[in-house]
Computed example of a mutant assay.
Amino acid sequence: MSFGAWIGLIVFLLSLYVLWQIRQLLLLLFTAVVIANSLNILVKLFQKLGMRRGVAIALSMLLLLTTLIGFFSVVLPSFATQFQQLALLVPQGIEKLNTWLDFFLNRLDPELIDSLPDTKELTRQLQPLLNQLLGGGISVFYSSLGALLSMLLLLALTLMLLADPIPYRQGFIRLFPSFYRRRVDKILKLCDQALQGWLVGILFNVCVITTLSLIGLLILGIPLALAQAMLAGFLTFIPNVGPTLSVLFPMAIALIEAPWKSLAVLILYIGIQQVETNLLTPIVMAQQVSLLPAVTLLAQVFFATFFGFLGLFLALPLTVVAQVWIQEVLIKDVLDRWHNDSENNPNEPEPS
């Protein structure tokens, strides 16, 4: 390998190291890109109504800020109060389950009971963890100065990308060789379409699941129905893992009143997930990039491992963008055009 090739390899490795060190900042930048791409839908809609782009951007940002302020000032305090109540009710639900299990185990064979794990010891070990996660985690998160600064930086980046996206787009394109820049511009357009399709689909699912969960929990008379419905809608952003987590809290609370309500909550959430899988997903998937379930699950594990909770939350849009790049660059531009020598020279005999 020549000296210049070694220098290039060293520079490449150093670049990878720098990118790894600033991975959280890059993830924040990607979040800003997703939000800017989402707001651009409103901007284009306002422009069709005759507004100038500057006015449309200002109105879109105003709607975003109004939504955020309304959420933090109206919805979040009541939700936080309910969440604190939830932190008190979940251990009660576990105690109820423990009592119910004791009642059930007393009717079993004593030899079979000895082979079962000690549920009391297990619940005693889990209760402090639940209290810490539900009680202290929220207050620490919202009192963190770093979270506030990250939010301000996110809004600033979103506004910059939305106000004048062309220089940033052109700068990214110029990182590629000149013969490939037109192709990169086309791929970026496909990424924009895929992200917008994902956003429209996921917001539609969130609204429907939140509404169905709220109606079902109110009919069953489950306490903290609003908090449970909002949690179910929020966890819709995390496929595979989210639906499983969303059903645990209402089932635990339902045990306080009656065991059958816990089973009814489980049936309710299974029914809602069936509606999403068989009715909502086929409708919105026409606007999205189709993702295999195994690929989605592996992407969640990968991004959560390297980027934490924000990586888990953004695993789906990151996977959507990654799939577009893999399909367009690796498959279409490399593998589909890769011919072996026997294909290039049909007169060459095949090896025996």
Rank of each mutant, 00 (worst) to 15 (best):
Leu248Ala: 15
Leu255Lys: 08
Trp325Ile: 08
Val265Ala: 10
Leu318His: 03
Phe307Ser: 07
Ala315Gly: 11
Leu268Ser: 04
Val265Gln: 05
Leu279Glu: 06
Trp260Lys: 10
Gly308Trp: 03
Gln274Trp: 08
Thr281Val: 15
Val301Asp: 15
Val265Thr: 09
Phe302Gln: 07
Val301Asn: 12
Leu255Met: 15
Asp336Ser: 14
Ala304Lys: 00
Pro259Gly: 08
Gln288Cys: 07
Ala322Pro: 01
Thr277Pro: 01
Gln323Tyr: 11
Ser262Leu: 05
Trp325Lys: 06
Leu312Trp: 02
Leu280Arg: 00
Phe313Arg: 01
Gly271Ser: 15
Phe302Ala: 15
Val329Cys: 12
Asn278Ile: 11
Gln323Asp: 10
Tyr269Asn: 03
Ile253Tyr: 00
Phe306Glu: 03
Gly311Cys: 08
Val295Asp: 08
Gln274Ile: 14
Ile283Ser: 09
Phe249Glu: 04
Glu257Ile: 13
Thr319Met: 10
Pro282Gln: 10
Val289Pro: 00
Leu263Glu: 04
Phe249Met: 10
Gln273Trp: 02
Ala304Asn: 03
Leu248His: 07
Gln323Arg: 07
Gly271His: 09
Phe309Gln: 02
Phe306Tyr: 10
Gln327Leu: 11
Gln288Ala: 05
Leu263Tyr: 06
Leu316Trp: 00
Gln327His: 15
Leu310Pro: 07
Phe309His: 04
Leu279Tyr: 05
Val301His: 11
Ile272Leu: 08
Ile253Gly: 00
Glu257Val: 12
Leu335Ser: 07
Gly308Asn: 05
Phe307Glu: 06
Ala322Arg: 00
Glu257His: 13
Leu266Lys: 03
Phe306Asp: 01
Thr319Tyr: 02
Leu263His: 06
Phe306Lys: 04
Ala315Trp: 03
Leu268Arg: 02
Val295Arg: 07
Ala286Met: 10
Val247Arg: 01
Lys332Arg: 11
Phe302Val: 08
Leu266Gln: 05
Trp260Ile: 14
Val301Trp: 12
Leu292Met: 14
Pro282Val: 11
Phe313Cys: 09
Ala264Phe: 04
Lys261Ile: 05
Ala254Cys: 11
Leu280Trp: 04
Ala252Cys: 15
Val321Asn: 00
Leu255Ser: 09
Glu257Pro: 05
Val275His: 02
Asp336Ala: 13
Val329Phe: 10
Met251Leu: 12
Val289His: 01
Val289Tyr: 02
Val320Phe: 06
Glu276Leu: 09
Leu255Ile: 14
Gly271Phe: 13
Pro317Gly: 13
Pro259Arg: 07
